[in-house]
Amino acid sequence: MVNPQMVMYEEEFVQIQTIVDRLVKEANAKVVFIVDKNGQLIAASGDVEEIDTTSLASLTAGNIAATGGIAKLLKENEFATQFHEGENQNIHIQLVGNRVILVVIFDAKSSLGLVRLRVRKATDELNNVFEALVNKTQDPASDSPFAEITDDDIDSLFND
């Protein structure tokens, strides 16, 4: 199949959420979130009510895609880490296994050094989880709930 799906199951989601929740605390961060490279939000933790995570996810993925394009031009594999410094808030962006993006937003209560340290540990853990997830998705035994949807199901979505 040309277009492999990304699938998130409860087991892996809980593992990812645990890592993200812990990273918020250990890095003294405001918000931590994980986005796939196509801009879909996977998990978020911290003061997420205050921000538009959907928009942030899409822009972060765009940012990573553009940086990846620059890397290619310079014959670099990837620029795996990005850091943007603002007046009050900073944002640390880390590519995890060239698959997903780990974003940490923090203010003066934390520091770049602490964030980098904690992100490194979380990246390794996340890598393992996503590795397992990919293997699970590729397993032919894992069936999709969409095999059973009917044309009527699809049509009914569009009957306004």
Partner: peptide
């Protein structure tokens, strides 16, 4: 790439 999230019961598609 469709993203199917069983946890959030969501399908995400990109057009």
């Amino acid at each position: 790439m469709t993203f199917i999230n069983y946890m959030a019961r969501e399908i995400n598609c990109k057009i």
